[in-house]
Nucleic acid binder design. Structure first.
Length: 824
RNA sequence: GCGGAUGUGGUGGAACUGGCAGACACGCAGGAUUUAGGUUCCUGUGGAGCGAUCCAUGUGGGUUCGAGUCCCACCAUCCGCACCA
């Protein structure tokens, strides 16, 4: 151990040693309790940013701590390596996306190693590797075979100038981000996964995820958006067809005064064909199709629409109501059609007001202040039914039930459930993704590639221009193939998969990475799954986490794994800020991990990040704070360096004799207790570190005393280094070795505290008069309520305090306080 | 609009079950060491007041012997969803 803290030497040396010893390699040990720590794998965009460092520092503390607690740890890392940035870089610089990606992976892997994270690199996965996407394709085929993948027409954002499909993020204010042409819509046949079939389970099982933040669970609940109601069929006047609507308010059926269809509803054009209303309706539809989604869904818009010149007949009272189209009705929710009840729905109220339609109240409020006959806004609360024939007088929730039952009896309606969640559109008209392993044959339709032919390799002979529909179409070798069914000439699917598929099962691949025979062996997945602690940014609260849950449930149903939920505990870490703002190139406030590692070393970077803020909160980056963490490491280093000289050869046993010994003994054991609990129960690394700082301060005080107990000091030093090792592993390793240990501190056990050292002889307590602190007193610890009160009252200053006062009552909390309530 | 969170010194944050508000650190001030600066070590540091004391956890109420913590109302900021019938 050098006299000076030389982080460059220390960090490089120990990283090499760990690698040589294969220290972080994990294997299945059926007899040992396991713990799977997972951090969200990065997109290899170039270099690590501070958000990554924070994410992985948190995970590394958890992994190293639980390892020392005796768990068999799985702590893997990999690369979410398909995606648009690589493709864009390729178009821009002419390099192949694979080259760009591989280079970035190398760079970032190097940085991760520089930070000393305890990853089992033998289990590294990269989604762009054929060994990985082979199994991605296999999984897709299983979904297809189970009826969970299907094709459907869907409009995409289309830039008429670039002749290409744009992702939503590439559309800026309705214009192409590259050429500013006005973006239009184009219908393409695309693949979907039937996540809606799992909507109920995805919703219900959220209740079992107690280890998730409530915020994330709520976000998922809202995203799934279950609503219970009924479908009601209205007959179209003078036509044989029905118009079916979805409503959650069947109780308001008697208040229907009009109907609205979404402009894109398939019934609209037939209804107006060759009528005087056709021209206006088509013009309105045209206008809507040109609006961006943001414009169209702006709730502050005035309600617009067109009358279609026809009527629907209300099944409950045979009333004829006019039919409109309006953009406030969405095609892909419910049936794409709505019954208009202006009295009890604010949107309908606005529409009826704008078009001069009747407003018929059918629910009477309990609140007499509201005049239902002259509403200023829709009345949406509960009440009793009026103007509703035989249902009058019923409470509206009961009325709703009865109306639905009666509609079911006459075949005019049925109770249904609707979800906000839509099926997952997974087709991407991109190159850099997993090819969808499907083949179209004129005779057999869509058939999957034979499993023995997987992977369907991503062709390299494509031309990336950023133009055209699907880049794979430019490959001369890819498109044409034979039908796996009948052997006739057939064409391959030219789209690739949404990269969210790749990241929906990578945590399972880690359990059996590199297996050439299977996506993952069941017994291995069963040993490691579920992930005990998942850590990542809250930006993935909905999509990634929902898709992963969906995949796990499908795998469970297929018998591929035994858990229905992939992530038992979830920690969403806060953002890293600088000067109160998110670090970004445009703000010019980016602090790069590189420069911090270069200047202070990885241990300082990790310590600062963990100390400055609890993990779920935002973290404000400050140079002074980094400086402080660096100073603390130096302070510890000097202390241990001195201790190595003083306590070498001293056995780690002691008896605390005097009050100074007892004080250090107490602080030491108390620190072990606090640090253990702060890490294990709360992930409050900041308070764990501050507790260690207090121990260090105490040790500095103690070592200067005349009469010191070397066994105690040696023991304190040993515990100190163990406790620091999850946070600052390199320097801890250096100190650990200097203390005479030959195995890595990673393999050492986590210290235990001695409860008897925490029992104090006496305690300082507080004396309150009427709840205000008036005096302090020292009394024996561990007294019962009566003896405690007696002791305190006989203390001299306390006796003086209450002299001449009339005591009404006393509240005693032994070992803490005595509150004396006196007459004012 | 709906849902969720947050609000404590000059700053980051602590206070876990209602029981000494401000742990730990940053910053600042002073002292020691040093030729000097830096480093290191020590001391002090919420505000007002000479003082005993008083005032302080976004604001206003309430419950309680006692409230940063529990309840009600409000304000501010952030995040998510947003014409979902």
């Amino acid at each position: 151990m050098k006299k000076q803290y030389d982080f460059r030497d220390i960090e490089a040396r120990w990283q090499r040693t760990w690698e040589e010893q294969d220290l972080f390699r994990s294997t299945e040990e059926p007899k040992q309790k396991k713990y799977y720590v997972l951090e969200m794998f990065p997109y290899p965009s170039g270099k690590l940013h501070m958000g990554h460092v924070r994410n992985y520092s948190i995970g590394d503390v958890v992994a190293r701590f639980l390892k020392m607690q005796g768990y068999n740890i799985l702590h893997p890392m990999g690369w979410d390596s398909f995606g648009l940035p690589a493709e864009n870089a390729a178009i821009k610089h002419g390099a192949h996306p694979a080259e760009w990606t591989t280079q970035n992976i190398q760079e970032m892997k190097h940085q991760l190693k520089q930070l000393g994270f305890s990853y089992d690199w033998d289990r590294e996965v990269a989604t762009y590797h054929p060994d990985y996407y082979k199994w991605m394709q296999w999984i897709f085929i299983q979904f297809f075979k189970r009826g969970l993948a299907y094709k459907k027409e869907h409009p995409v954002n289309w830039c008429p100038s670039c002749h290409t499909v744009l992702a939503n993020e590439q559309v800026v204010e309705g214009q192409c981000e590259r050429c500013s042409a006005v973006v239009t819509k184009k219908n393409l046949s695309q693949w979907y996964l039937k996540i809606t079939e799992y909507a109920d389970r995805l919703l219900e099982d959220l209740d079992t995820l107690n280890g998730w933040p409530e915020k994330v669970r709520t976000m998922q609940r809202n995203w799934i958006g279950k609503s219970e109601g009924a479908e009601v069929s209205f007959r179209l006047k003078d036509r044989g067809e029905d118009l079916t609507v979805f409503t959650t308010r069947a109780d308001t059926l008697f208040g229907v005064t009009y109907m609205v269809l979404s402009p894109e509803h398939p019934l609209v054009k037939p209804l107006v064909k060759d009528t005087p209303y056709e021209a206006a309706a088509l013009a309105y539809i045209e206008r809507c199709s040109k609006m961006s989604d943001i414009e169209r869904t702006d709730t502050t818009n005035e309600k617009t629409g067109e009358f279609l010149g026809c009527y629907a007949i209300n099944p409950v009272n045979d009333r004829e109501v006019p039919i409109y189209i309006s953009d406030y009705v969405l095609l892909d929710y419910g049936t794409g059609a709505v019954m208009g009840v202006p009295a009890h729905d604010q949107r309908d109220f606005e529409f009826a007001t704008a078009f001069g339609l009747d407003i018929v109240p059918v629910v009477h409020p309990e609140d007499p202040i509201i005049d239902v006959e002259h509403l200023k806004e829709a009345f949406v609360a509960e009440g009793s039914m009026i103007n509703s024939g035989s249902y009058d007088g019923l409470h509206n929730t009961e009325g709703s039930r009865r109306i639905i039952a009666d509609l079911e009896a006459t075949g005019r309606g049925k109770a249904t459930v609707n979800f906000r969640l839509r099926d997952w559109l997974i087709s991407r008209q991109r190159y850099w993704g997993t090819p969808i392993p499907m083949i179209h044959c004129d005779d057999c339709g869509w058939v999957p590639e034979k499993e023995e032919n997987l992977p369907v390799l991503l062709p390299t002979d494509v031309v990336l221009t950023g133009r055209g529909e699907s880049p794979l179409a430019t490959s001369p070798t890819f498109v044409h193939t034979q039908c796996p069914c009948c052997g006739k000439p057939a064409q391959r699917e030219l789209d690739t998969m949404d990269t969210f598929l790749d990241s929906s099962w990578y945590y399972l691949r880690y359990c059996d990475a590199g297996n050439p025979e299977e996506a993952f062996r069941k017994d291995r997945a069963d040993y490691w799954m579920a992930v005990d602690q998942y850590i990542g940014g809250v930006e993935h609260a909905i999509l990634h986490l929902l898709y992963s849950r969906f995949f796990t449930k499908v795998f469970y149903d297929m018998g591929l794994c035994s858990v229905e939920e992939p992530f038992t505990n979830l920690l969403t870490q806060g953002m890293v800020l600088k000067d109160g703002n998110k670090m970004s190139k445009s703000m010019g406030n980016v602090v790069s991990p590189e420069e911090i590692i270069e200047r202070y070393g990885a241990d300082t970077a990790r310590l600062f990040i963990l100390f400055a803020s609890p993990p779920e909160k935002e973290l404000e980056w400050t140079d002074a704070g980094v400086e402080g963490s660096f100073r603390f490491i130096n302070r510890v280093y000097r202390l241990v360096e001195e201790m190595v000289g003083v306590t070498s050869g001293i056995p780690l046993v002691y008896r605390a004799e005097g009050s100074d010994d007892k004080q250090l003994d107490y602080v030491l054991n108390h620190t072990v207790k606090r640090v253990t609990e702060d890490i294990k129960n709360r992930f409050n690394f900041n308070t764990a570190i501050s507790a260690i700082m207090e121990l260090v301060n105490e040790m500095y005080r103690y070592k200067e005393l005349d009469d010191i107990n070397l066994g105690l000091l040696a023991c304190a030093t040993d515990r100190l280094v163990r406790m620091l090792s999850p946070f600052i592993p390199h320097v801890a390793e250096e100190m650990w070795a200097a203390l005479g240990n030959t195995d890595s501190v990673y393999l050492a056990s986590w210290p235990q505290y001695d409860p008897s050292a925490l029992v104090l002889d006496s305690v300082e307590i507080v004396v309150q008069i009427n709840g205000k602190v008036r005096e302090r007193a020292v009394v024996a610890a561990g007294l019962d309520r009566e003896r405690f009160t007696e002791e305190v009252l006989t203390c001299e200053p306390v006796a003086a305090l209450i002299e001449g006062k009339e005591i009404i009552k006393m509240i005693a909390v032994p070992d803490r306080l005595l509150n004396i309530v006196v007459k004012a």
